[in-house]
Computed example of a mutant assay.
Amino acid sequence: MSKLTHLDEHGRARMVDVSGKETTARIARASGLLICKAETLAAVREGRAPKGAVVLTAELAGIMAGKRTADLIPLCHPLPLTKAVVTIEMDDALPGFRVTAEVRTQGVTGVEMEALTAVSVACLTLFDMLKAIDREMEIGCIRIEAKSGGKSGDWTRS
């Protein structure tokens, strides 16, 4: 078994030292879903959601969360993001919302956690804003779709 990177020789948690790594352009895309009733989706589409601008609020919440990932995830490096975009699309076939995030930086470590956090918080915000009209919603399928940059190179979900 390889040496654990987030534990020191005494088993204490530590942030990995990335100071020797090369600065490169880092990009990560993540996605997730919020499944809801068709009536809930219709209420949002028609502007009848009780809490107002549901999609816009959730997109902004996702961006804000991506920027604060290091405050939420222990041992995650704080990164200066150069781009954070969260997009939420309504999908009648689910029914529900498809949430995507793209995050970029110039840095020594990747932005996968920032993209995942952005999607997660956007989904949670949708849930919060719609729970008064739909208590059976489900959040799921939160995953990395692609990443680029760094020593491990590019990767895209097959």
Rank of each mutant, 00 (worst) to 15 (best):
S2Q: 10
L4G: 08
E9V: 12
G11N: 09
A13F: 13
R14E: 15
V16G: 10
D17L: 02
E22N: 14
T24Y: 06
A25K: 13
R26A: 08
L33E: 02
I35H: 14
C36M: 05
A38R: 13
A38W: 14
E39M: 10
T40V: 08
T40Y: 00
L41K: 00
A42W: 06
A42S: 11
R45C: 07
R45T: 08
R45G: 06
E46I: 08
G47W: 03
K51F: 08
G52S: 12
V54C: 06
T57Y: 05
E59Q: 15
E59N: 15
L60M: 14
L60G: 11
L60K: 14
A61C: 05
A61K: 00
A61Q: 03
I63G: 01
A65N: 09
K67D: 03
R68T: 02
T69M: 04
A70N: 09
D71A: 15
I73V: 15
C76K: 02
C76R: 03
L81H: 12
T82F: 05
T82E: 05
T82H: 05
T87K: 11
T87Q: 13
E89A: 11
E89K: 10
M90I: 04
D92T: 10
A93R: 12
G96S: 15
V99M: 01
V99E: 00
E102G: 07
V103W: 01
V103I: 15
R104I: 07
R104L: 11
T105M: 06
T105G: 06
V108W: 07
T109L: 01
E112I: 04
M113Q: 06
E114L: 00
A115S: 11
V119S: 01
V119G: 01
A122K: 00
L124H: 06
L124Q: 05
K131I: 10
D134Q: 07
M137A: 07
M137Q: 03
E138A: 07
E138P: 04
I139A: 00
G140R: 12
R143I: 04
E145G: 09
E145F: 06
E145W: 05
G149T: 10
G153W: 06
D154S: 15
R157E: 14
R157H: 13
R157P: 07
S158W: 13
S158F: 08
S158H: 09
